[in-house]
């Protein structure tokens, strides 16, 4: 437990949270853990969309370090779900949120000295959402006493239900991205998950597609870009044609210029 010295106040239960939040100490924790180890890289500070199952299944490799699940790093996370239960405890509202993949308890802390917001009003507000409304939760994932909690959580009700789908699709995309390129996956997919970049209006044998293919094939090995001359030689076309095709590909956003104007990098 020595690793948790920074969290002296948190140790024995709920009261600890209280102190931290009321003094606005939340983000300071990130600074105080800076010296925690050389392995610690800069934490991802944007919200990672996840499902509650991912949160519950995730494991923490180092105390106070990042959580990981299926190669997805969880630090600042966001999830959505339906509030199934609301209770109050001291100066916090405790909500149980469920999204079909699992459930999690989150707390919204109400500062006692904050006159703009009262515990009862907030409890009434969130109680009215119980079994009625999806809410969005964002915050940083922490673990205390083997229980995962969301620190500095923000909550807001979802008014446009498309956001539910958007969130889940983002979570799927992020998950797949972390698994590497999902080509030839072992899942029994009949349809490909992603649409090919190739423009279906053009036959795959057209010269411009061949140019793009040459650039794609070689972009990974030629870090400064593929030379125009290389394309000319490879496809046995005139320099002028090659240049025109490359310009067209740049305009359509499929390639970029590399080290200079005569080198190209495909996305």
């Amino acid at each position: 437990m020595s690793d948790f010295n920074n969290y002296g106040n948190y140790g024995d239960g709920d009261g600890g949270f209280d102190v931290s939040q009321n003094t606005g100490g939340g983000f300071n924790n990130d600074h105080s853990t800076g010296g925690n180890g050389s392995q610690r890289n800069q934490l991802r500070q944007s919200l990672t969309p996840v499902t509650i199952k991912q949160i519950n299944d995730s494991t923490q490799l180092n105390p106070d370090g990042e959580f990981k699940i299926h190669n997805v790093e969880l630090n600042m996370i966001s999830f959505i779900g339906i509030i199934r239960k609301v209770t109050t405890h001291q100066s916090a509202i405790i909500m149980t949120i469920e999204d079909g993949t699992g459930s999690i308890e989150v707390r919204k802390w109400i500062a006692e000295n904050d006159s703009s917001i009262s515990l009862t009003e907030e409890e009434e507000k969130f109680s009215s959402f119980v079994n009625e409304k999806y809410i969005f939760v964002g915050g940083s994932l922490r673990q205390f006493n083997n229980k995962k909690t969301i620190q500095n959580a923000i909550f807001y009700p979802i008014e446009d239900s498309n956001q539910i789908i958007y969130h889940h699709l983002s979570a799927i995309e992020n998950h797949l991205r972390c698994q590497g390129i999902p080509k030839n996956t072992t899942t029994k997919t009949e349809n490909k998950l992603f649409v090919d970049n190739v423009n279906p209006n053009k036959s795959s044998g057209s010269t411009i597609d061949k140019v793009l293919q040459v650039l794609k094939d070689n972009s990974s090995t030629m870090s400064e870009g593929v030379q125009l001359e290389y394309v000319v030689q490879k496809l046995n076309i005139s320099r002028e044609d090659a240049k025109n095709y490359c310009d067209e590909l740049i305009e359509s956003g499929k390639i970029y210029t590399g080290f200079d104007d005569n080198t190209y990098i495909a996305i």
Binding site: V50, T51, K53, Q54, H70, G100, T101, S161, N162, I165, H168, L169, A171, I172, H175, L176, T187, T189, N191, L193
Partner: peptide
């Protein structure tokens, strides 16, 4: 709510049982 998106979401969620 766009139900076409909802249908797609169902199909994709079946393909990533790890998170669903």
């Amino acid at each position: 709510l766009n139900l076409d998106f909802a249908t797609k979401f169902v199909q994709y969620s079946q393909k990533v049982p790890d998170i669903y």
